Simulated scan of single mutants.
Amino acid sequence: MNQHKFTNITRKKKEKHLKFEDRIKIENLEKAKRLLPKKKQMTRKEMAEIIGCGVSSLYRELSRGKVILKDSEWKDYVSYSAVVAQEDYDRQATNKGPEIKLQDDYKFVNHVEAKILKDKWSPDAIIMDLEKNGNPFETEISTRTLYYYIENEFFLNVTITDLPRRGELKKRKKRNVQPRQKVPFGKDITHRPEEVDSRMKFGHWEMDTVESGKKTGTACLLTLIERKYRLTLIFKLRAQTQKEVKRVLDSLEKELGTDDFSQTFKTITVDNGSEFLNSEALEKSIEESDDPRTNIYYCHPYASYERGSNEQMHTLIRRFIPKGSAISKYTKGRVYEIQNWINNYPRRILKSHTSMQLLIREYIPNIQQIFQECA
């Protein structure tokens, strides 16, 4: 489900919810108004400014508390009663099914708030998890309804700004560039095996780097995501260089063994960054074999969508490491925690499963060694 659909609603400025004290003020102002000559009577706009509400809200409130009274001459006149208006307000509030239901189910409210604030889950992930693993709460709602509750501030501690995208859709600035159709080096993506595009077999990866903010150091992250199960691997690099990238791949091959490495990393798709410049060096096995340990394929320039899984995974990393951060400040242990969080995060594209659940279900030889290497 496209999360943008619910988190990017244009919010109108909310009008004030009147309290009983406000209704008492309205009643007193109405009484005072009746005692004054018509030319000196307060306008509805002036009264609304005193109460601190909109003029339309004031008119609705006067209608809510409308009563017929009798004057000293026993003639009927229209007035306003704060008690009558409050009773009508309370009666209508009890008929608000979704809001009252949510307020009564404190365990569900606490669960949602903890998942969003502490575990950094999206509302969709929360609902998927409850649907898949069983819902122990009285409240049963859809993803769309949960977004609606958050958007309209039915939760005490969670607002739209606490969600991963914070209720905003940042539009990319248009760049006037002339796309180059030819990859400047190595094999381009059009030469990849068809099974890579189908995502039917394990072992095809996308690789990229996440940079530190400007003037915050050279440290960066090397990220890999497996296309079928969206398994994520994250490594901390001292610098954004090919030497550092090769060091990680060499270490993985040494840990897994050349044969298992080749079965686990059949292909790797990268962009045209300088850290991936020499495909032959990255493909070359530490065993000095003539056969490459993997096959590197390059996306077309300015075509990040050709590594869509990689780009999406980076948005998950940014929940913990915001843009502009100094990656040198994040320990390897912390990076490993972020990796584990991503691999255990329910994904709609995985039919509510996590990457780790799917890997456990379809055993991949020596996969545990990869995670040990990351730690």
Results as ranks from 00 to 15, higher is better:
Thr241Gly: 04
Gln369Ala: 10
Ile296Asn: 02
Met128Ala: 10
Ser198Asn: 09
Asn110Trp: 11
Val83Asn: 06
Glu195Tyr: 13
Arg227Ile: 03
Gln368Pro: 01
Thr209Glu: 02
Lys5Tyr: 13
His353Gly: 05
Thr209Val: 06
Asp208Ile: 09
Cys374Asp: 12
Lys174His: 14
Arg144Trp: 12
Ile360Gly: 12
Ile24His: 06
Glu280Ile: 14
Lys39Gln: 15
Ile126Asp: 02
Arg60Tyr: 01
Val196Met: 06
Thr315Met: 13
Leu358Ile: 07
Arg361Glu: 11
Leu102Gly: 00
Ser279Lys: 11
Met313Glu: 12
Lys115Cys: 14
Met207Trp: 02
Lys101Asp: 08
Met356Ile: 12
Leu156Asn: 11
Gly324Asn: 03
Lys329Arg: 15
Gln41Arg: 11
Lys5His: 09
Leu231Cys: 09
Thr264Lys: 11
Tyr305Val: 15
Arg199Met: 09
Lys75Tyr: 07
His300Leu: 10
Cys299Val: 13
Ser56Ile: 04
Ala239Gln: 13
Ile317Glu: 02
Thr159Lys: 08
Trp74Ile: 15
Ile367Met: 10
Phe202Cys: 05
Gln242Met: 03
Ser289Arg: 14
Asp208Arg: 09
Ile338Met: 05
Tyr330Cys: 10
Tyr77Gln: 04
Glu99Thr: 09
Asp124Glu: 13
Leu163Ala: 05
Phe265Ile: 06
Ala326Phe: 08
Asn344Gly: 05
Asn95His: 15
Asp119Trp: 06
Pro193Phe: 09
Ser352Lys: 15
Glu140Ala: 15
Ile116Trp: 04
Tyr305Gly: 09
Tyr59Arg: 11
